[in-house]
């Protein structure tokens, strides 16, 4: 692959990525948004992050696709711990510990 071709690919993806992240900020930030739009935007956080969790755990591109018992246990523990203590560090430690423990016990 030529250097020019590499630069063009990286530049196009860089510009596209910036626009995907910036277009709405630059278009909408100065406008008074209608209630209907704000109502929809309030759902973006929980919906996108929940969908992201599923794709991370049950990644179809991985050989071990689907949710294993250890992964399921780790998710439940993480949700409970974060709901109770609201600390990402505690959530990370508790969730990964649950994952390793259940994975070890289930062989």
């Amino acid at each position: 692959m030529s250097g020019i071709e590499a630069i063009v690919i990286v530049a196009l993806v860089a510009v596209g990525t910036y626009l995907s992240r910036g277009a709405m900020i630059l278009l909408l930030a100065d406008r008074e948004l209608p209630d209907n739009t704000l109502r929809a935007l309030r759902q973006v956080g929980p919906a996108v992050l929940a969908a992201l969790v599923v794709t991370f755990v049950a990644d179809p591109s991985q050989a071990n696709r689907g949710v294993s018992l250890a992964e399921g246990a780790a998710l439940v523990v993480s949700c409970g711990v974060h709901w109770r203590w609201k600390s990402l560090l505690v959530t990370l430690i508790a969730g990964m510990s649950a994952f390793w423990l259940v994975r070890g016990l289930s062989g």
């Binding site: 309030r42 956080g45 996108v48 969908a51 969790v53 992964e71 998710l75 711990v81 974060h82 969730g95």
Partner: peptide, 28 residues
């Protein structure tokens, strides 16, 4: 697996009412 665990935790704290819960469950 770590990002999924932390994002799952954040989703739980974002669920402050029925609409957000329905949004998250439907997305899953």
């Amino acid at each position: 697996l770590a990002p999924a665990l932390m994002f799952a935790g954040i989703v739980v704290t974002m669920i402050t009412g029925r609409p957000a819960a329905i949004a998250a469950v439907t997305a899953v």
